[in-house]
């Protein structure tokens, strides 16, 4: 059991690198995309509301594996056209296809989560800003978004974990993430223990992330716990007003 680990640890770690890379990049890109989409989805006069609803519903209602196949294999059907547009290099590469699929998929979930957060912001707090003559932009920046992200924070963490686990499907399109490496090693050795090491690796990654996210959440929700902030925060406090929570 240990000899599998000593023989193949480099491969497994490289796989972990790819898994984390795909997850982090996709989550960040999706985060950037989800914010404007969620705001547009919530706005009262939205021509964009329906297309966004459709987009969210589609990506939440279909398996990630099917989406990945649609992008990676499906693009092959339009190879000539994509070549003409100069996009074939992108769709030929399983890495980019996986990234694109994950970004779209995670954006859909994050839009839905953020929408819930936006709707849960206490209306009185928004109104206090309105009554003061804050512009729409400043209302979002200082009151609505900081509140919405705090509310949505745990759900966003969950979504990123789901993405991390879901990323295992890239092994099916010949990428060597943890799952891909594991399957390759198993096909060479037929030693079941490699699956257990892979499981351990995934658990390590997810629990490390859960820990990190929990720490971040404690930082963000200190106003709900702390009786009194330390007095040294006086100078910091002035910065925090304008900083808000960056997405």
């Amino acid at each position: 059991m240990m000899d599998i680990l000593t023989r193949f640890s480099a491969q497994l770690l490289a796989g972990a690198g790819l898994t984390l890379q795909l997850t982090v990049i996709a989550a960040l890109l999706a985060c950037a995309l989800a914010l404007p989409l969620a705001i547009a989805r919530c706005s009262e006069r939205g021509l964009l509301r329906w297309p966004i609803r459709l987009f969210v519903s589609f990506f939440r209602g279909t398996p990630l594996l099917a989406q990945l196949f649609l992008v990676y294999y499906g693009s092959g059907q339009f190879r000539a056209e994509l070549n003409q547009l100069g996009l074939w290099w992108f769709f030929r590469d399983p890495y980019y296809c996986a990234l694109l699929t994950f970004v779209l998929n995670s954006t859909a979930y994050q839009v839905e989560i953020l929408r819930g957060g936006l709707r849960a912001v206490p209306y009185g707090q928004i109104e206090a800003g309105v009554a003061m003559g804050l512009s729409r932009f400043n209302q979002y920046r200082t009151i609505i978004l900081p509140n919405a992200y705090r509310i949505a924070f745990p759900a966003l963490g969950n979504e990123i974990i789901l993405l991390l686990k879901g990323s295992a499907v890239v092994s099916v399109i010949t990428l060597f993430d943890v799952m891909g490496q594991t399957r390759r090693i198993f096909s060479q050795t037929f030693d079941l223990s490699v699956y257990l090491w892979a499981a351990l690796l995934y658990l390590l990654m997810t629990s490390a992330f859960v820990w990190l996210w929990h720490r971040l959440e404690l930082c963000l929700t200190r106003h709900q716990r702390v009786r009194q902030a330390p007095s040294t925060a006086t100078s910091l406090a002035s910065k925090r007003v304008s900083a808000g929570v960056s997405p």
Partner: peptide, 29 residues
């Protein structure tokens, strides 16, 4: 999913079949 894969193997129409798969899942969901 696998049936679509097999179909793609002989017809070389991956987009069509995987789109149909997606739509079928979507509809059921």
């Amino acid at each position: 999913m696998r049936m679509a894969n097999i179909a793609v193997g002989t017809t070389k129409k991956p987009f069509l079949f995987f789109l149909v798969v997606c739509l079928a899942y979507w509809l059921v969901c």
